[in-house]
Design a protein around this nucleic acid. Structure first.
Lengths: 339, 339
DNA sequence: GTGAAAGCGCTAACAT
DNA sequence: ATGTTAGCGCTTTCAC
C-alpha cells in the first residue's frame, strides 16, 4: 500500500488513476450490477493499492444509513455487561453492522448527542433506568430495543429480558424448603426492573408460603460489590437472626460474601447467600455462588436480531422477549443453623 | 419538544421557522461571533423546540473533524479494561470529545473499517498485540497512543505504560526474600509487552539472585482466568515442588488461586501467588491477592491527554510515558513451607 | 450581522 | 456498462 499524499484518499483519486468516473468507483467497490468484471477488478486493485476506505460521513450523508448500532452500557466495571456485549458485537458483525459502545455515565450529554445526531441506525439499551432515552428515541423514530432491563409497565416497547418473577420465585422456593424463615433481600434500584421485579417476585412468593420479610431486612442499593457488602453488613447488624440473603444480582451477592467474611458468618453454615444472573465469576471456587442463571448470550442475540429486523423494516411490530431462567445450585446455600 | 415530521430535523427547518438563513442557524448554535444576541436567542429557542441536533455526518464532512476518539479494547471480560475505559471517557468528555469503544475481537474487519473511514480524530490502542494497527495508523497519519501495552522495541511511538520491569523486579525481590527457590511463572502472550517484559524482568531479577526458573515452570498463555487456572495446574503437576507462582496479571493469578483450591494447595501456606495490575477484584476477601499496583486511572488519563494534544496539534512529538508501580502486600504470599 | 454560494465525499437517478 | 449530475446537512468564505 502506497500512500500518495498526506491527506485522505477519496474515490476521486481512485477514479483518476483507474481512468473511470468517480461514480464507477463507487459502484465497482460495492459490487453493484452494471459494472463490467474487468473495470471492477481494476478499480479494486487500485483502491487497495491506495489504501482507499470509503468515508463514512460521506456515505451516510447520502444514504442516511450508518450501519452502526449504538450500545448503551453503564457501570462497565460490572462483568455482567461484558457477557452481554460480546454476543451483541458478534451478531451485529454477522449482519454487517458495527457495534459502538456508548458509555452511559452520569454526564450523558456527549452520549446523548451521539445517539440523536444520526450516528446510529438503531440503539440497544442495556443500562437505562429512566425512560428519558427510550422516550426520545420513540419520538424521533429511531429503532431501539431494551436489554435486560425494561421500562416499568411499558410492555409494548421492544425488550429482551429475563423472567425475573420466575427466577425470584425459584429462589424463594429454595430458601423456604431449606427451612429459612428470617430472610433478607438486597435489591437493586427500584427504578430498574431487575431490581424491582426481583424484589417483588421474591416477596410475593415468600408471602404465599407465609414467610414475611422484615422491612429492616430489605436494602435497595446500586448494583455494585461495594454496595452489596455495605447493605449486607447493615442487614446483619440490624437483624442478626437473618439466615439467608437473596441478592438481586451476582455483584451484590459477591459483596454479601465479602460482608459475611468480615462479619465472621461462614457461608453457607451460618449464612445462605443466593445471587441472580450467573455471571462468569459466580462459578469460581472463591465464590461458588448459588444463583439464578440467565442465558445472556441468547438474551443479547435475540435483542440484536430483533433490532436489526426493525432497522431493516420499520413496520415490524415491537416485540417483548422474556427468557427462561434456571436455578444453579452451588455452594452458598444450606439449611439454617440450629438454634 | 414537538417533533414536526417523521424525518430528521435539519438546520434548514430551524432557519425557516426562525426567519433567517441556514448559515445563520449554524453560526448561532455554535456561538460564533458575528451573530446578534437576539437572533442567537431566537434560533436557540426554536432549535430546542424542534429538538434539532446537528447531524454528525454533515458536520464532519465539512470540517473533517469528528470530535470522536476510538478506543480499541479487547477481551472485555477482563475487568482490567473497565478500569481503563472509565477515566478515558471522562477525560475525553472534559475536552468535548466522545469516546467510542471498539471491540477488538478476532474478526476485526468492521472495527478496522471504522478506524480508517474517517470516523475518528484519534485512536487509543488498549488491546493490541501485533503492529498491524499502529503501522497503518502511522501511514495514514491518524494520531494514536498505545495504552498499557506497546510495540516491542518501538519506543518512538506514543505510549502510556506501566514500569513492567520494575514491577516484576519487586516481585522477584519479595519471593527471594521470603526464601522461595522453586518458582513458577504464568506469563501472558509473548506478543504483548505486558507478557514478555514482566517475564523477562522477573527472570532477570531472580537470576541476579542466583535463582533459576525451570523451563517447565513457565507457561505463556492468554490473559484469562481459565488459562491461568489451566497453566497453574500444569505447572503444579509437572513441578510439584514449586512453592510460588508469579502471574503476569491479576486474572491469571485469580485463575491460579482457583487451581490451588482444586489441587488442595492452601494459599499462602502451601503456595504463594502474586499477580500484577491490582484490579478491583484483587482486594476482595475471597482473593486478597498480593500484587503489583498500576494506577490505571493516571495511566489512562495521561494517554488521553497526550493523544488529544496531538490531535489538536499534529506537530507535537510522540511521547512515551512510563508509570511507576507499587507492591501491594495482601494475603497470598508467605515463606515456603518447611520440608 | 446576515445571506448567498461553494464544497466536503459519497450514493443514486438519469442520460448515453 | 459507464459518465453526468443532483443532493444529502453541514461549515465557511465572500459579498453585502
Amino acid at each position: 500500500m502506497r500512500i500518495l499524499s498526506c491527506v485522505t484518499v477519496t474515490s476521486i483519486d481512485v477514479a483518476k488513476l483507474a481512468g473511470v468516473s468517480q461514480a464507477t468507483v463507487s459502484r465497482a467497490l460495492r459490487d453493484q450490477r452494471g459494472t463490467s468484471e474487468s473495470t471492477r477488478q481494476r478499480v479494486r486493485a487500485i483502491a487497495r493499492e491506495l489504501g482507499y476506505v470509503p468515508q463514512q460521513s460521506g456515505r451516510s450523508l447520502s444514504t442516511s444509513k450508518t450501519r452502526r448500532i449504538g450500545i448503551v452500557v453503564g457501570e462497565l466495571t460490572n462483568p455482567f455487561y461484558a457477557a452481554l456485549v460480546d454476543p451483541i458485537v458478534h451478531e451485529l458483525g454477522k449482519r454487517g453492522y458495527l457495534g459502538v459502545l456508548l458509555y452511559n455515565d452520569d454526564a450523558h450529554e456527549p452520549t446523548d448527542a451521539a445517539i440523536f445526531d444520526g450516528s446510529f441506525d438503531g440503539v440497544l439499551l442495556a443500562a437505562v433506568s429512566d425512560n428519558r432515552l427510550p422516550q426520545e428515541l420513540e419520538q424521533r423514530g429511531i429503532p431501539y430495543c431494551m436489554l435486560n432491563r425494561e421500562i416499568q409497565g411499558r410492555r409494548e416497547i421492544s425488550a429482551s429480558v429475563p423472567d425475573n418473577l420466575r427466577g425470584s420465585e425459584l429462589v424463594a422456593g429454595l430458601l423456604a424448603n431449606l427451612g429459612h424463615t428470617e430472610i433478607g433481600v438486597i435489591s437493586g434500584p427500584t427504578s430498574t426492573t431487575t431490581g424491582s421485579e426481583r424484589l417483588r417476585g421474591f416477596r410475593d412468593s415468600l408471602a404465599r408460603r407465609n414467610i414475611a420479610v422484615h422491612p429492616e431486612s430489605i436494602r435497595k442499593v446500586p448494583f455494585t460489590i461495594e454496595d452489596g457488602c455495605r447493605a449486607a453488613r447493615e442487614i446483619l447488624g440490624a437483624r442478626p437472626n437473618v439466615t439467608a440473603l437473596f441478592c438481586a444480582n451476582d455483584l451484590l451477592a459477591i459483596g454479601a460474601l465479602e460482608a459475611a467474611a468480615l462479619e465472621m458468618r461462614p457461608v453457607p453454615q451460618s449464612l445462605t447467600i443466593v445471587g441472580f444472573d450467573n455471571i462468569s465469576l459466580a462459578r469460581l471456587r472463591a465464590f461458588n455462588l448459588t444463583t439464578v442463571a440467565v442465558d445472556l448470550s441468547v438474551l443479547a442475540r435475540q435483542a440484536t436480531m430483533h433490532l436489526l429486523d426493525r432497522v431493516d423494516d420499520p413496520s415490524i411490530e415491537p416485540l417483548r422477549i422474556v427468557h427462561d431462567v434456571q436455578l444453579i445450585l452451588r455452594g452458598t446455600h444450606s439449611a439454617p443453623p440450629l438454634r
